[in-house]
Amino acid sequence: MRKPRVSTWGGVAGAVVVAAILAFVLLPGFVVMIAAFNARAILSFPPESWSWRWFAKALAYDDFRAGFRNGLIVTGWASTIALLVGAAFAFVLDRYAFPLKRTIEGVLLAPLVIPHFTIGLGFLILAAELGATRGFAVVVACHVVLVLPFVLRSVYISLRSLDQRLELAAASLGAPPGRVLTTVTIPLLAPGLVSGWLFAAILSFNEFTASLFVTAQRTQTLPVAMYNYVREYADPSMAALSVMYIVATAIILIIANLFLGLGKVLNVEESR
């Protein structure tokens, strides 16, 4: 289809508006990045002198180190469990018709509409009843519930775009159902599975609201550790940590993009 022509002035005005919107979106990140290099121990903008020292301090701070480690533990378990459960449910929802299908689908997607603090509070009350407020189990369980809808959707969309005739072809060539799954279905779903896991991992690692309720001192994740830090201090090590967050996430997404294509990672294009 031919693109409609825009007059020169319209084009310029459009470019300005787009640039303004982009700047607005990127502004907070930009301010924080600048603030991280402030040599003085205040969160001010713009800085008067420059330094790397807040990066060193952030990396050396015990609570951040523990929070990072705890975050990895929680994220690893939560997104892996969510992937297995979500993929299984997505498969069943895609392939089988059964009573209450819509209801089950609704329940699995419900965390999208229930506020995170409600889920966190709920898990806190449950954990208190069971006397399990100090362990990782409750944090992991809470995160599984939070990220499950995203994994489920990601895998479900991949399954929808999978041509089932490929599986029939494999069966006609002598592959029993188990081998169809391992040689055709799973390899073709891999981008959807990986992107689902990655999405879940990023969400879980950054989750704050519910984590604030369900973590204890021993299990606090990085966002919670940062919150606790900022309540007491206001130096730029927080900003330095934010910069590292942004860089790490960007690197992960770039790698994922190299292997899968960002369209597939974000599930905005058909995964074939």
């Binding site: 041509d163 490929l166 072809a169 069966a171 006609s172 002598g174 592959a175 029993p176 055709v184 074939r272």
Partner: peptide
Amino acid sequence: PPYRREIGVLFQNYALFPH
């Protein structure tokens, strides 16, 4: 089941394994 019937099927869209 189909995987024990020893039949060859040529599908309309060919259904080749893309991977």
